[in-house]
Deep mutational scan, measured.
Amino acid sequence: DRYEFNINGVHFTIDDAEEELIKLIEELLKRGARAEEIEEVIRRWER
């Protein structure tokens, strides 16, 4: 599934997002994580 979200006006799209990654990102968003922090999480996840 495609997952899309915005952080401070920056648009992100993840194709074939796994449910666990989506939950992790949503938790980070609730905590007010910065875009750079979430980008790093996504990079690590994709390795």
Rank of each mutant, 00 (worst) to 15 (best):
residue 21 L to P: 00
residue 42 I to V: 07
residue 45 W to V: 07
residue 7 I to A: 07
residue 31 R to Q: 10
residue 44 R to Y: 14
residue 31 R to T: 11
residue 30 K to S: 11
residue 7 I to C: 03
residue 29 L to A: 05
residue 26 E to I: 13
residue 33 A to T: 10
residue 9 G to D: 11
residue 39 E to G: 09
residue 6 N to G: 04
residue 14 I to A: 01
residue 34 R to Y: 10
residue 46 E to R: 09
residue 46 E to W: 03
residue 11 H to C: 03
residue 18 E to P: 15
residue 34 R to N: 14
residue 6 N to L: 12
residue 12 F to K: 01
residue 23 K to D: 08
residue 4 E to F: 01
residue 36 E to P: 11
residue 41 V to T: 09
residue 6 N to Y: 12
residue 5 F to N: 02
residue 4 E to S: 03
residue 1 D to W: 02
residue 1 D to E: 12
residue 40 E to R: 08
residue 4 E to L: 00
residue 26 E to D: 08
residue 17 A to S: 07
residue 7 I to T: 05
residue 29 L to N: 03
residue 35 A to Y: 09
residue 11 H to F: 09
residue 4 E to I: 03
residue 38 I to H: 00
residue 23 K to P: 02
residue 36 E to K: 10
residue 10 V to H: 15
residue 23 K to I: 13
residue 45 W to L: 05
residue 24 L to V: 14
residue 25 I to T: 01
residue 28 L to W: 05
residue 26 E to V: 09
residue 19 E to H: 10
residue 47 R to T: 14
residue 28 L to A: 14
residue 44 R to I: 10
residue 44 R to E: 13
residue 44 R to V: 09
residue 43 R to W: 04
residue 16 D to K: 12
residue 34 R to H: 11
residue 22 I to G: 02
residue 19 E to W: 10
residue 26 E to M: 12
residue 27 E to F: 11
residue 1 D to N: 15
residue 40 E to L: 08
residue 30 K to H: 12
residue 32 G to N: 11
residue 43 R to Q: 12
residue 5 F to K: 01
residue 16 D to E: 14
residue 19 E to G: 09
residue 34 R to M: 15
residue 15 D to M: 13
residue 43 R to Y: 07
residue 7 I to D: 01
residue 11 H to Q: 15
residue 13 T to D: 05
residue 37 E to I: 07
residue 28 L to I: 08
residue 38 I to A: 06
residue 20 E to N: 07
residue 30 K to A: 12
residue 25 I to P: 00
residue 20 E to K: 06
residue 33 A to S: 11
residue 27 E to K: 12
residue 36 E to R: 08
residue 2 R to H: 10
residue 33 A to I: 06
residue 36 E to I: 08
residue 14 I to Y: 02
residue 18 E to S: 15
residue 40 E to I: 07
residue 21 L to H: 02
residue 33 A to L: 04
residue 27 E to S: 12
residue 34 R to C: 10
residue 1 D to H: 13
residue 16 D to C: 13
residue 29 L to E: 02
residue 29 L to C: 03
residue 42 I to E: 01
residue 45 W to A: 09
residue 47 R to L: 12
residue 26 E to Y: 08
residue 31 R to H: 12
residue 8 N to G: 14
residue 22 I to C: 02
residue 16 D to P: 10
